[in-house]
Nucleic acid binder design. Structure first.
Lengths: 216, 216
DNA sequence: TCTCTTGTTATACAATTGTATAAAATTTTG
DNA sequence: CAAAATTTTATACAATTGTATAACAAGAGA
């Protein structure tokens, strides 16, 4: 028997390969079900590499969680900032980004929930969650404030924060139930639904976020 | 060495003991980390009983998920129906029930998330989730409709459903982030926050849900 | 082309897993 | 109070786990 042929990759390439393989396996099999061997196979390498690059399985899984959270926030952030037309536009597209692919995905929600389930009992996960949540709230506040300003609404720091907490709750909840797609309604209604709900949550005049446009 | 002394329990008692031990272990160790032996120890019995009462570990875990969902919904439902004073009261206390103990609990959220993470890949879990979600939406609609009626607002079936979907999202999201208690704000603000947000989400006049009362 | 570095594979090992089966103890029944 | 019924314990077993270590091979620099 000859050895497996292999190609050397750069540190970043190999790490990313392993991180994505880890996420794929965690989604399909859960945290413990995603064994080092399965992850390695998914990545097209052998199990020893996990130790080489991440020290241990735990190191890999923790990094994968941070990687996932970064992906989710960056996607919504990027899509919001593509629109320089105004505050309403940015907030609208931020909301839409959370209710459409690639963020509205069963796999991503499965991963997110699986990790969230461990936050209470694992301080590494707790740190990643807290930081991600704080960043997300801050980002939301920065999107909400100018919208309130444009409509001459109260926009104190405390006011913005409360709005951000509530709006984040709405996003999280709709994102999760919508991604799981229980079949009780079509995912296609979610963008419109969250925009209307967001308008009401922020006390904006009806239609001010949808801007008259219909997204298809 | 003599055998362990034991007491026979009725079928329901023993099952409930095992279900609760299973939930405790799943919360602490995750789905695979909650081994049959650990669950049995937590329940004060030996591992063989799991097979005797639930056929397999999977049977126990699946039952435990259904048991948890039933608990969560029943708690909020019961607390809402304690108030016969009117529709506003009932909806208010339903919302509060989701933002206070025992439902607002890190352990319960950890469990919920852990199970949700498997919904996509396990049809048994998917069935339990779909049914639970459907029941919850139906319950919410039944609470929302009379409130809309009391305020002379549009309350078609479609309207109520959209409101229920959005309000459920808000509840889920706030419940989850609030329970995890990242330390970014106090949980104590959640009941007021969800009531105000709920009012806006349903287009109710400000203060109509809080009814002037402050809950302490 | 040759050596050197180190990315990568291959193997070994103790620990733990779910489940199957047999033995024992408790409660119920007559 | 004896005996049947069945809950519960105890043990066995193959399979799988994470990690440690050693052997190998690919690519860089000379």
């Amino acid at each position: 028997m000859s050895r497996k042929a292999f190609r050397r990759l750069t540190l970043d390439e190999r790490k990313r390969t392993l991180l994505e393989a880890a996420l794929t396996c965690v989604a399909q099999e859960g945290l413990k079900g995603a064994t080092v061997r399965r992850i390695a196979e998914e990545a097209g390498v052998t199990a020893g590499l996990v130790r080489h690059y991440f020290g241990s399985k735990n190191g890999l899984i923790t990094s994968a969680y941070a990687y996932l959270i970064g992906q989710l926030t960056a996607e919504a952030d990027t899509r919001a900032r593509q629109f320089t037309g105004g505050a309403n536009d940015q907030l609208r597209h931020f909301l839409i980004a959370n209710m459409t692919m690639p963020n509205l995905s069963e796999e991503k929600v499965s991963l997110w929930a699986t990790f969230i389930g461990r936050v209470r009992y694992d301080t590494d996960f707790a740190d990643i969650h807290r930081e991600g949540y704080r960043d997300y709230l801050t980002l939301l506040e920065s999107l909400i404030e100018p919208v309130l300003a444009a409509h001459d609404l109260p926009r104190s720091s405390a006011e913005c924060r409360r709005h951000a907490i509530a709006l984040n709750g709405l996003i999280d909840g709709l994102w999760m139930e919508g991604s799981l797609n229980s079949g009780l309604y079509s995912r296609a209604i979610l963008p419109d639904l969250i925009i209307e709900a967001g308008e009401r949550l922020l006390n904006l005049p009806a239609g001010s976020l949808s801007g008259g446009k219909q997204h298809t």
